[in-house]
């Protein structure tokens, strides 16, 4: 239902709000920088993986609650989005950590510490 409004009043800029937006952007940039620091300074391992996922969730929280404005919606809406996602995280932990490791063990997959060189000799195929 479009109606012609010839005199649209542009409201003035709320400086504090704009500053808030840039502050969130700065936080996201800093968290990413911290992730980089860990990527270069720390050896790969379970602890580093947990740190990365933790920092990712921090970033996701800022994007969802501030940029997507979910933090300022009513409680019902917040829970209807957050609760299903929490079940998904449960699924991720179960599938990745437990199942992935179990399948690896069941298959007898062994880790490699140096690549095997080319096949020696030429078996006929």
């Amino acid at each position: 239902m479009e109606q012609l409004t010839s005199n649209v009043v542009v409201q003035p800029v709320d400086k504090a709000k704009i500053r808030g937006i840039w502050r969130v952007a700065l936080i996201l940039a800093i968290v990413t920088a911290i992730e980089y620091a860990f990527a270069f300074a720390m050896d790969a391992g379970m602890l580093r993986t947990v740190i990365f996922i933790g920092l990712t969730i921090v970033k996701a929280w800022f994007i969802v609650s501030e940029f997507m404005h979910l933090g300022h919606e009513v409680k019902g809406l917040i829970y209807s989005i957050i609760l299903p996602m929490m079940f998904i995280i449960w699924l991720i932990v179960a599938l990745v950590n437990l199942e992935g490791g179990a399948i690896k063990e069941a298959r007898g997959v062994v880790d490699v510490d140096q690549p095997a060189t080319e096949h020696v000799g030429g078996e006929e195929h």
């Binding site: 991720i92 997959v109 062994v110 490699v112 510490d113 690549p115």
Partner: peptide
């Protein structure tokens, strides 16, 4: 989530490289 679960699942059940990262070379193993 489904795609990322698949990724992580396949990755965690694949053989990992446990050698020195400095001397890492690509391999299909």
């Amino acid at each position: 989530s489904g795609l990322l679960i698949t990724y992580a699942f396949l990755r965690w059940s694949a053989p990992a490289y446990t050698g020195d990262p400095e001397t890492f070379t690509f391999s299909t193993q």
